[in-house]
């Protein structure tokens, strides 16, 4: 990871010195452990602030929406797929971007590590295979494969799909990964079982909308939850309103979500709302053979008409 950081600083400096881009979008160290923050670097000197480690789980494509300047952006597999989605949806132009691909080894799950710690975490460092967590009077070493974010553990697109240059050699993509076991388990439940499962899942939601704000797909100028005329969904903590918000948001991401995990990562109470978007992702793959953000040429399923679209649920 140290090699990544060095290389990232070098590339950012070069791009800014040559004025190829006006700013570079990357990560700087966060003020608390495991919370690297996205940052725009505008001068070659500032490039020294950039870092890369296993805490760069935020999706940088989120910060490209409707930008007008030339931007250099560091992109993991998922970021790059969301950049593709942004380009397809006319939120940014390809010519505006210098995409520096970062072959990804997976990001670590801050919720899980915090849950396993014996108190407040003061420092998290890592080497090739281990994550070393230190706090007041305790020290724990985790194998990084055991503490990967849930979406990273089943990721099949670690390498960027679109890039102008690379930070390191491409990594090997895992071959047979069962991406949808959790979704199948929920699908197998009875109607009542599903209702209870989602009740339980969303019980802690405080409607802070962190998931929406972290999501690169959620760029509507006015989100449906903020509309008051008409008011699509109640603003209360009522379980019905909470559920409406999560289901509707997921549907807005249908055929667009890349399972980057930014929503789950951003959640302050650790709700796994990815089960919603993953169900839609699974349907898109099974019914339309579609995976979001892999190509600039193909049109997404909700944007294209095919006479052979599966429609057996319509009478």
């Amino acid at each position: 990871m140290r090699a990544y950081t060095e290389k990232i600083r070098e590339i950012a400096r070069r791009l800014l010195e040559a004025c190829t881009v006006e700013r570079v979008l990357g990560f700087r160290r966060g003020s608390v452990p495991m919370m690297n923050a996205p940052c725009f670097v505008k001068t070659p000197a500032e490039a020294a602030n950039l870092v890369w480690d296993s805490n760069c789980g935020i999706n940088l494509a989120n910060y490209l929406t409707s930008r007008s300047e030339k931007i250099g952006i560091f992109a993991k597999g998922c970021d790059s797929r969301n950049i593709v989605t942004h380009i397809i949806e006319n939120k940014i132009r390809r010519e505006q971007l210098v995409i520096i691909g970062v072959p990804c080894h997976g990001m670590i799950d801050r919720h899980r590590i915090a849950a396993m710690a014996d108190g407040e975490i003061r420092e998290v460092v890592e080497d090739e295979n281990n994550i070393i967590v230190q706090g007041d009077g305790f020290k724990k070493v985790h194998n990084r494969h055991d503490v990967l974010q849930a979406n990273c553990a089943v990721c099949t697109h670690r390498n960027p799909v679109i890039y102008d240059e690379l930070v390191a050699d491409l990594v090997e993509e895992p071959g047979d990964v069962d991406r949808y076991r959790d979704v199948r388990e929920i699908e197998a439940l009875s109607a009542e079982g599903k209702w209870d499962f989602f009740d339980d899942l969303l019980h802690d939601c405080i409607r802070c909308y962190a998931c929406r704000n972290a999501c690169p797909l959620c760029y509507c100028p006015t989100c449906f939850v903020d509309e008051s005329r008409p008011q699509w969904v109640g603003k209360s903590q009522d379980p019905v309103d909470v559920r409406t918000f999560h289901f509707l948001r997921a549907y807005h991401c249908a055929g667009r979500c890349t399972d980057c995990g930014a929503c789950e990562r951003a959640c302050p109470v650790g709700i796994n709302m990815r089960v919603f978007t993953k169900k839609l992702e699974k349907d898109c793959l099974e019914k339309f053979g579609w995976e979001a953000g892999l190509s600039l040429e193909a049109r997404p399923p909700l944007d294209a008409y095919r006479p052979d679209d599966p429609d057996d649920f319509i009478r």
């Binding site: 109607a191 009542e192 599903k194 209702w195 989602f198 009740d199 559920r243 649920f313 319509i314 009478r315």
Partner: peptide, 12 residues
């Protein structure tokens, strides 16, 4: 999502 099958129907 926990709604009984049959309560929600689509038709064209």
């Amino acid at each position: 999502m926990g709604i009984e099958p049959g309560r929600l129907q689509f038709s064209w």
